[in-house]
């Protein structure tokens, strides 16, 4: 296990060191201490390494991650795992707004709650939130799965494209063009797999599925109020 002290040795050195790890590295396990809410911790990684951040982080932790597994033993600020391509990011605490924003792939797990705009413009990432999510989550979400074991806030899935949303608890309100949809066997299978990979013991059968009504896909003046 390699250890890196952000407070003592600086952010640039941390990211340069982690980004330099190659596919066949032997140094696969890293521990990052004293993050103290710093921004851009462990961003742009591109190797199958395992990074544990011992404490809470600021904005954009694990941004644009590829391949790496990043675990945060604390809470994260805005934009955790933004634009993630692959790999896994696990947050033991809560996540601020924009969690998993525009993510293309990989798995983001939030053990606590995520605040507003969780999964905004997501493009293929899978996000599992053990707690609740805030308002405007999955706004303009294009692809991927957002799983919420708790409740969802206002305007869930507004202007949704083809992302799939699964919520176990209540939904305060649905956004424009987002509707409840039938849970078919293939959805239960996807959901069950995501829940088990995210370490949740929730049962897939207890969730409801939401998706795009596809009414806004081609402009119609009678829908103008929804724009």
């Amino acid at each position: 296990m390699q250890s890196y002290d952000v407070a003592a040795d600086g952010l640039r050195g941390l990211n340069a060191t982690l980004q330099a790890q190659k596919q066949e590295t032997n140094q696969t396990r890293w521990e990052v201490v004293n993050p103290k809410g710093s921004h851009a911790i462990a961003v742009g990684l591109d190797a199958p390494i395992d990074v544990t951040v011992k404490g809470s982080t600021g904005y954009y932790c694990a941004g644009m991650n590829k391949q790496a597994t990043v675990r945060v033993e604390g809470s994260v600020g805005p934009g955790v795992a933004e634009n993630m391509m692959s790999g896994t990011v696990i947050v033991d605490g809560d996540a601020s707004q924009y969690a998993g924003a525009t993510g293309h792939g990989g798995l983001l797990v939030i053990k606590g709650n995520a605040s507003s705009r969780c999964g905004i413009s997501m493009k293929g990432i899978d996000i599992v939130v053990h707690g609740n999510i805030g308002h405007m989550s999955a706004f303009m979400a294009q692809a991927g799965n957002l799983v919420v074991c708790g409740d969802a806030g206002d305007a869930l899935g507004d202007s949704l494209y083809e992302a799939k949303l699964f919520v176990r608890g209540s939904v305060k309100s649905l956004g424009a063009d987002c509707i409840e949809k039938e849970m078919r066997p293939e959805h239960l299978e996807t959901l069950g797999d995501l829940l088990s990979r995210a370490g949740s013991d929730a049962r897939a059968e207890d969730f409801r599925r939401y998706g795009s009504a596809r009414e806004l896909y081609n402009f119609d003046i009678d829908n103008a109020a929804a724009y």
Binding site: L11, A40, A101
Partner: peptide, 28 residues
Amino acid sequence: IDQRSACRHPDWTGPDDLEIKILELREI
């Protein structure tokens, strides 16, 4: 389908956040 584009960035709003976004892009 018609492609609707957002008017704001999805993960930052305002110059104080932009500073942090620029930091992230530089770090990457």
